[in-house]
Every structure is written in C-alpha cells, then in structure tokens.
Design a protein around this nucleic acid. Structure first.
Lengths: 200, 200, 200, 200
DNA sequence: GATGAATGAGTCTTCATTCAT
DNA sequence: GATGAATGAAGACTCATTCAT
C-alpha cells in the first residue's frame, strides 16, 4: 500500500530531524511521533523499537548515498581513479552540506551504533567504504597508484579525513572555505600521497 | 589532600572502563561507583553530574596525551616537520592501542559531546588538533610543505584519518598490519601529499 | 444468520484456547483474532469488549454443561440422590478432563470475574451450584440425608472439593488415579458424610 | 537494618490491600507505593518486579499461617485426627474471616499464579496442603480413618471445600451461619466420610 | 568526607478500541 | 458485515541525584 510506504518514510525523515537536534539517546519516541505527525504507537507498526529506527535510517540513507555516488562516478569520472576520488570527495562533502541533519546523525551516532548494535552489522556503511578501496585497487592495476598502499587502510584514512573535515560545517555552518576548495585540498593530499612519481 | 586526588582519579579510571564497556548513556552511576569501589553519593562530591565526569575525563586524559606527545616531539623529531608528523601519528596510534578503553570512549563519545555539551567547550581537544596545524605551519615556513595547504583543513583531515584508522583495532583488536606500518602508510600519504616537490 | 452465529462461536472457541494458554489479562485481542481467523475489529461486532468475551464464554459454556448434566441426571440417576451426586461428580470431572482448555479458563478466571465484573452476575454459575443443593434437599425430603446438613454450605463444599481435585489434572495431565476412582472417592466421602445412619 | 525489614513488610501489607481491592493485574505499582507511603522506585529496592511482590506475599503469608496452624494443632488437638481436622478447618475459616483482604488475594490470585509463574513453585502452599494429608495418614495408622481413602485426593477435596465455602464470606461478609457452625458442618461431612464404622 | 537508601520524574512500549474503507 | 491501520492512554520500571546519618 502507498500509505504504508509513506508512513515509513515520514517516520525516518522525522527521526533524522529529531536525532540531529537532540541525539539518539535524548530523543523521545514522542518527539518523533509529533514531528512525523503520527501517534507514538504507529511508529511501532513500522519499527521494532527505537534502535531499529536508527539502524533503518542508517541503512536506507547510506543506501541512497551509495546509489548516488555510483551514478556520479559512472557519469563524471571516466576511468581515471584520481578523478574518481575527487568525485567521491566532492559528493560526500556536498551531501553532508546539503543534508545537514542527516550528516549530524551519521557523524554523531554511527560510531556508537557500530559498537552497541553489533548484531545489526552496518553493512551499507561497509559497502560505502569499499567504494573507496575499489577505486584504489583500480588505480593500482592501472599503474597510477603505488603498489605498497594498503587499500584497506586508505579507505579509512580517506573517509576519516572527509568525515572529520565535514564536521567543521556541521558544527559551524558558515564556511570560511568553499566545499569545492576543501574537496580539492583533501583529494590533492591523498592523490599526491599515493600516486606513482617518476623518481620512485 | 592525597586521598581526595586519589578518589577523583579512581572515579575517572572507573568511568573510562564503564563508558568503554557500555557507552555513556547506557552506563549507570552505580556502575562507576562499583568499579571505583566508592558509594554512588561519593561521586557527587567530586563531580557535579554525570556529564561532568565525561567532560573531566576528556579534558584530563587529552591533557596528558598532549603533554606526552609534546615531550616526544621535542626529544625525537628534531626540527623536521615530516618527522614530527610521523612521531605524532605513531604516538596517536600507539596510545589508542595501548589504552584501548580510553580510545573507545574518545571515539564513541567525543562527537556527541561536542554537540550537546557545547557549554563546556572541548578546549583540550582543540589544543591537541592545533599541534598538527602548528607542525604544518612550521613546515611551510621552512619551505618544506606547500604554501597552498590550509593548516586548518589539514589538521582535521590528518586527525580524521588517524582516528578512523585506529577504530579498526578498537573494534577488532587482532591487527593484520602493525601499528608502525600503518602509521607509516598514513604519514607517507599525507607528507607526500603536501610536500614541495622539485617540479612544482 | 448462520454466518453470524458461526463467527460468534468461532470467537468464543478461540478465546477459550487463548485464555487457557495465557490467562485473560495476558491474552491480547489480536491473539484471539488470529486464532479465530477474523480481524480484530470483527470481534467488536460480536462482543462489547474484552471482558464481555469472558463473561459470554462463562455463561454459554456453563449453560451447556448444565444442560448436559441435567440430561444425565434424568437418564442415569433415577430418583436416588446418592446416585445423583455420583453422576454429578463424574460428569464434572470428566468434563474437566475432556475439555482441558475450558477447564483451565474456568478454574483460573472465574474467581477474579466474580469480583471484578459483579455487574454481570455469574447467573449460570449459581444455577450450576444450585443443582447440587437441589439434590441435597431432595435427599433430605426422602429421609436419606441428614436434616442438619445445610444445602447452601454443602453445595459449595462439594463443588470446591471437585474443583480443587480436578486442578490436579489440569496442571499435571498424567493422572495417577482414574477419573472414576477419584469421583468415587469424593462422592463416597460426601455421601457418607451426610447420610442418615441407623445409629443416629 | 530495622528500616529494611520494616519497609519490606509495609510494602507486602500495602500490596495485600491493593491486590484485594483491584486484583493483581488491575493494581498499579503506584497504588502500592501510595498505600505503603513509599516512592514507586523504593518498591524495586525490595522486590524484583510486580510478580515478585505477589509471590513473596504468598510465600510469606502462607508461611505464617502454617506456623499458626501447626502451633494450634499441637496445643489443642491432642492426638485425635478428627480433632485435628476440626482445628484445621476452624483455623482456616477464622483466618479467612479475620484477614479478609489476604483471603481475597489468596482466593483470586493463587490459581493464576500456579500456572503463570510456575518457575516460582508455590512451595509453601504445597506445604500447607500436606498438613491435611499428614493428618489423614496418621488417622489411617491409628485405624480411625479408612485405609482406602487416598490422602492426596482428600487433602485437595478438604481444602477445596473450605476454600470455596469461605468465599461466601469474602464476597458477602454478612454470614448467615457462624464460622464455628460452618467449620463443624464441613468437618463432620469429611470425618463421617472417611471414618471407620463398625459395619464396614 | 563517605555512605547508600530513598526518591520520583521520565519514557519506551503495549494493546484495547475505533473507524474509514 | 468485515477489515486492520491507526490511535493514545496507561504503567512498569530505571536511574541520576539527594540527604540524613
């Protein structure tokens, strides 16, 4: 039914707003209900419990981001892994800037969840990080990136750099530097850091 | 009094253990009391409330880390900003590996706190990050690092990379790569990323 | 309509199963709906509320039992009040054994209901007990039972003895004694207890 | 500490009142707290949960009753099992009459509990019933009661008769017959029912 | 200073009941 | 008549904090 899909989405949207405002633990189910304009009990028709809302939110929203970034990589990065990293970084920072509330939730709650809801396994998040290591591996096959770079370390370092940087805007929304500038800065550092140079 | 100092420290230590095990919100004051072998009420002789324990923990422990890393930079890095970044990275990862429980607390709770306890201002954390930007600035003055690198962006990117990487061990303590190897990987990426090269 | 009667009966049957399994208070309307294969809302077309299901169940099922036992008394007990008590006891215990689920509901819920749903007056239950006192009175008129026996006390004592005894099977369905044996034991005690003897 | 014992007892007393008034399921913890003049949370310092209050209540109160009746049997019944049954019946009915609220709770809730809190095993209740079968066995050894009477059936029948009868007063406190009269009636029936007579 | 019993506000979750379809 | 999605009141239980000892 259309109703059903509607309400599920409305609740997730409301939860993003409320969690971003108060944090997961300080948010009350009643807050989400009010924001989504449904009764408290209705939430439990779509989610098992409060944790389940957070987990669903993570998986669904990160799922959307993955689709977006993959589309963008296909259409705008060609086959150049340097360009791909640039596209990934720019998309990540833009998304974090456009969807401020979602960004806050991801930054604040994802880590806790990783630990306390281990049963759920944040599979989508892993998938997101694996896009980065995939790019690195491709670049290594193409002889563009150094062979000694560990993709599994790089993906975390690159994501960590982007994530920590974007917190700047989430916390203080008046950028001193533009998103594009920052994305360039970071991507340049990482590309220069792993590119094969003549003298080496 | 020495006793007093004793108990304050005992409570902080206990809080680190309990918060790392359960997270701040799931931890009960009673848990900390039991772990520290003091009565619940005693905790309120040393801290204003539950939040205050977390904030004090942050400031004091990060304060210690700052002292350690500054000492190390003085004694082992000479005047070379590349070496300084290497020392910083290695110290950070070692510390996160040695003090696993503290590492978990910092990684899980620092972000939430940044937002919800704004009044407290995590001044020590800022100070810690500023060590990185200080190194970059020095390197730029020495003509070793590129002028166009923004120290304020770099410090966050570098810290983010280290932080995200170290989560690997916190979550799955059986490293596949050694700490030294990883510290080298990351430092190399960042140094290569910002170093002044001949052709430029 | 036959359909209607059908559904009313289906719901009562389902309620017996569910109440016996979980008890009245722990049973959910949804459980009954699922068991009866009707929607939750449908139940409210046939009953005013949850209590009403229980009360209807009592009155209807006890009504059936009364009809059965009266038929049996007519056909098998002749005019002998001793035989009548025997028939009553045997029928009661057999019924409790055959309809285990109904037995559980009666034993567990009848007492609570007596108190909290006073408005409803368990008239059928009173009628059932009055069969016993009727037998006693007849026996007294016939000079078989002692005049000083109070039928109003006897009916409760006799019913209580049967009821409490039958709980043995409801709780632990593997009898050590047969139903007939037990019915005889109890009836003998009560008949011997009130019969007019030569020496008295 | 005396305080502790005090509060535990106060809560049990309050629970008896509240449960007798509203029944276990309709009673709210807040009701008990108010009645006992303690905060809701305090109740959870002395009991694990709502069920635990009921179970504790059962075990403790039945424990007291057992002590009383055993004392009475020792002091007033001599060695005559007929007299012992009489004493038991009289004590039971008197107690049910004197402690009306406790009586209601026992009559209304004991059966449900038997089923739903099986884990707890109502050991004290079993012990209480075993006093009856003990008397019967003694009477059989003395040649006063018939050998073919099954003590395990008798104990339930006798208790059931007393229990069901006493509900008369609990529900409608204005007796038409005195307690002594009723106790005599029932005991006579049961004694006559199982006594060895000359002709047998 | 130290204790820990007591407090009671706060919240997730359940579920009987309703009503638009 | 039948449905079942939606409602929202209700209540068991937790736990940070206090304060008399």
């Amino acid at each position: 039914m259309i109703r059903t899909a509607d309400k599920h989405a409305k609740i997730i949207e409301a939860a993003i707003k409320v969690f971003s405002r108060k944090g997961f633990f300080n948010a009350r189910i009643a807050d989400i209900g009010k924001e989504a304009q449904v009764a408290d009990g209705t939430i439990y028709l779509y989610f098992n419990n409060k944790y389940d809302i957070l987990i669903s939110l993570f998986e669904e929203e990160i799922g959307k981001i993955i689709l977006e970034v993959k589309l963008l990589l296909d259409s705008e990065a060609g086959d150049d892994p340097r360009q791909m990293l640039r596209v990934f970084a720019l998309h990540h920072l833009r998304m974090m800037d456009d969807r401020r509330e979602l960004a806050e939730v991801l930054q604040m709650e994802l880590r806790q969840s990783n630990k306390f809801m281990r049963e759920y396994r944040l599979t989508k998040f892993s998938e997101y990080l694996d896009i980065i290591s995939g790019i690195v591996k491709q670049g290594q096959r193409q002889g563009i990136f150094r062979e000694d770079v560990l993709p599994g370390v790089f993906k975390r370092a690159f994501f960590g750099a982007l994530d920590e940087t974007s917190r700047l805007w989430v916390l203080s929304p008046d950028h001193s530097y533009s998103i594009e500038e920052t994305a360039d800065q970071i991507t340049n550092i990482f590309i220069n850091g792993i590119i094969v140079t003549d003298q080496q």
